[in-house]
C-alpha cells in the first residue's frame, strides 16, 4: 500500500488541515516511509488476539446522575476568540 498526493489531500480534508504544495509533497514521502515501516506488524499473526484500548481493567465508568454546578459562562468565554450574548460566535454556518 502506498499513498499518493491525492490520498494526502483527502486525509488533510478529513483532518481539516490546509496544506501547501510543499507540505503535501513532504507528507506524502514521510507518511509513506512511516506506513511502510508500520507494515512490519503484518508479519505478526494476531488471529484471536483481543485488542487493547488501554491497560486498566475499567469499562463504563458511571456516577450518580446528580446535578452539579458548572463553570460560570463569563469565565468559560474568557478564552473565546469571539463571543456574543454569552455564546461562542462563529461565521455563518448556512449560506
Amino acid at each position: 500500500m502506498s499513498i499518493t498526493t491525492k490520498d494526502v489531500e483527502h486525509v488533510a480534508n478529513l483532518a481539516r488541515l490546509e496544506l501547501s504544495d510543499s507540505e503535501k509533497e513532504q507528507f506524502t514521502g514521510q507518511l509513506n516511509a512511516i506506513l511502510k515501516y508500520a507494515e512490519k506488524l503484518n508479519g505478526l499473526d494476531t488471529e484471536g488476539v483481543e485488542p487493547t484500548s488501554h491497560v486498566l481493567p475499567i469499562t463504563n465508568v458511571m456516577r450518580a446522575d446528580e446535578e452539579r454546578p458548572s463553570l460560570p459562562i463569563g469565565k468559560v468565554l474568557l478564552n473565546a476568540p469571539d463571543d456574543e450574548e454569552g455564546q461562542f460566535k462563529v461565521p455563518a454556518v448556512l449560506e
Binding site: L35, L41, T46, P51, T52
Partner: peptide
C-alpha cells in the same frame, strides 16, 4: 489494517 492491528499487537 492499521489501528485495530496495532491494538492487537499492543496486547502481545
Amino acid at each position: 489494517a492499521y489501528y485495530l492491528k496495532a491494538q492487537k499487537v499492543r496486547t502481545l
